[in-house]
């Protein structure tokens, strides 16, 4: 199972990130997770929100270039080695992780790791086979 992520193109200049978060807040869109990757010129903001489709519509209304894509979400036990086990499993299967970031869905609960993997379907079945639970958008909402 996978999760929908919204990614947004931002220029790497002062105030751009604040601007987009302000717009989302105004529209009542809650950011469950946020990660910014950037170069000297530009950045890509990746966010997890409750209603990705509405979020996308809001962004487009405000002239942002954005898209929704499916990413793998894994719950990581809060103990040493929890994260590296997941990476080992993916590595052994020859799966390449383009990027990842983690967040805590709810205070006191396990962390959730978002991974962008090109062969998403295969990654999901490899993880399931090793008993690593992947989570869906619905799971996120209920956490």
């Amino acid at each position: 199972m996978s999760v929908k992520q919204v990614s947004i193109f931002l220029e790497n200049s002062k105030g751009r990130l604040a601007e987009v978060t302000r717009i989302l807040a105004r529209e009542g869109i809650d950011l469950r997770a946020l990660s910014l990757a950037d170069t000297s010129d530009f950045g890509v903001l990746r966010i997890i929100v409750e209603d990705p489709d509405r979020c996308l519509a809001v962004l487009k209304d405000n002239d942002y270039v954005a898209r929704v894509s499916e990413v793998v979400a894994v719950e990581v036990e809060d103990r040493p080695g929890g994260m590296s086990r997941i990476l080992d499993v993916l590595d052994e299967a020859g799966l390449n992780v383009e990027y990842l970031y983690a967040f805590v869905a709810k205070a006191g609960k396990n962390a959730v790791v978002i991974c962008k993997i090109d062969e998403r379907e295969r990654a999901l079945s490899v993880l399931e086979a090793k008993g690593i639970r992947t989570i869906s958008s619905e799971d996120l909402e209920s956490t």
Binding site: Q5, F9, F42, V65, E98
Partner: peptide, 18 residues
């Protein structure tokens, strides 16, 4: 200017476009 068609959520793809 960035367009829907050029955009990718991966920095590497965008750098490749540049």
């Amino acid at each position: 200017e960035m367009t829907e068609a050029l955009f990718s959520d991966e920095i590497r793809d965008l750098e490749r476009t540049e």
